[in-house]
């Protein structure tokens, strides 16, 4: 039992650290915000980070299977453009529209998985290629930014819940609990992590390796579609080029959240903290009076510090050969 606890702590201590950093940043942010700590400020803060947080969750699941999804931004843009056509009208049409959008995300993700598994193509290059295809389709669906999205849903998801909690965070957590928690507890989720840890060992143990990989990418696509929907609720429109900066930021959020890109372990919650940290830093710079031009440099430095933590592993090795792992 203590061994289990030890492993659990060791695996999640960096996620915990990410949440502590986020807490500190948030307190400081609310402290210096001219309007002070209020639910309005808190909701606006949460809204800024939620789209990236959804992507970071999807990216984490793929990374845990020792893959990477460079098409996650394009899937987000594609589903966002779809939503700007479909998420309108009466309750039935809305439900139908959202279902189609999420389905589209799932299909894109599944295609990624199939290309990786059947084509035996390395994930970086496979998702780079499918990403180009999804971007193309996003441009066909909506050549220039525009369209419209139901405003009631927008207010529901970007406002606050009874004046206590930002509803975007609630939506985020509920969807993670609905779509990832059950999977992570089931054998499918275990298989995803096992495949990421050692594909050969997973195969030898009789796990369905291919199915686990495809499932990981499909979940990535589903969470990317949530992100596309949420961006739609924020902007009330569709934009085919919106995904560009998000792909690399989602990877950065995963790293800051403490998930190793080598797969086999990871924390979805840590990545959510990572995404919110990235966005909070952006807002902080805006209010602290640092020159806005220094913002990219500052963000880069934060990423550098987060990454440098990975190098502390070198201090613990006993055998020179372990360096190469």
């Amino acid at each position: 039992m203590t061994a289990f606890l030890d492993i659990h702590l060791r695996r999640n201590n960096r996620a915990l650290l990410a949440w502590l950093v986020l807490g500190g940043l948030l307190v400081y942010f609310l402290h210096i915000h001219p309007r002070g700590a209020s639910i309005g400020v808190l909701s606006a803060w949460a809204n800024q980070g939620t789209a990236l947080a959804f992507l970071a969750v999807g990216q984490t699941i793929v990374v845990m299977s020792r893959g990477v999804d460079l098409s996650i931004g394009p899937i987000m843009a594609l589903t966002n453009c779809l939503a700007s056509h479909l998420v309108n009208g009466g309750p039935l049409e809305l439900a139908f529209g959202i279902a189609i959008v999420v389905l589209a995300g799932a299909v894109c993700g599944a295609i990624n998985g199939i290309v990786v598994v059947v084509g035996k193509i390395q994930p970086i290059i496979a998702t780079l290629a499918t990403g180009a295809i999804y971007s193309g389709f996003a441009l066909i669906i909506r050549p220039i930014p525009g369209g419209s999205i139901d405003e009631t849903l927008s207010e529901l998801t970007t406002g606050d819940l009874a004046g206590i909690l930002p509803s975007s965070i609630v939506v985020l957590l509920v969807l993670v609990c609905l779509f990832w928690l059950p999977v992570s507890k089931a054998s499918l989720g275990r298989s995803i992590v096992a495949v990421g840890s050692s594909e050969q060992a997973a195969y030898m143990s009789g796990l369905k390796v291919d199915r686990a990989k495809i499932a990981a990418y499909t979940l990535g696509g589903i969470f990317a579609s949530f992100s596309g929907l949420f961006i739609g609720f924020q902007t009330l429109s569709g934009d085919p080029s919106i995904g560009l900066p998000y792909t690399l930021n989602s990877i950065a959020a995963v790293v800051i959240g403490g998930t190793a890109l080598t797969g086999g372990a990871g924390s979805v919650l840590g990545s959510i903290a990572g995404a919110l940290i990235l966005r909070t830093i952006g807002s902080l710079i805006f209010f602290t009076g640092l020159p806005p031009l220094a913002q990219p440099l500052f963000e880069g430095t934060v990423l550098l510090v987060a990454v440098a933590f990975g190098a502390t592993r070198l201090l613990r090795i006993n055998n020179r050969l372990e360096v190469f792992q």
Binding site: V118, T130, G136, I140
Partner: peptide, 18 residues
């Protein structure tokens, strides 16, 4: 159009590398 270029580009990579 740009869209067709992107799609073409992606398909070629997947086909050749696959």
């Amino acid at each position: 159009p740009e869209a067709a270029k992107q799609i073409c580009y992606g398909v070629v990579i997947i086909l050749m590398v696959g």
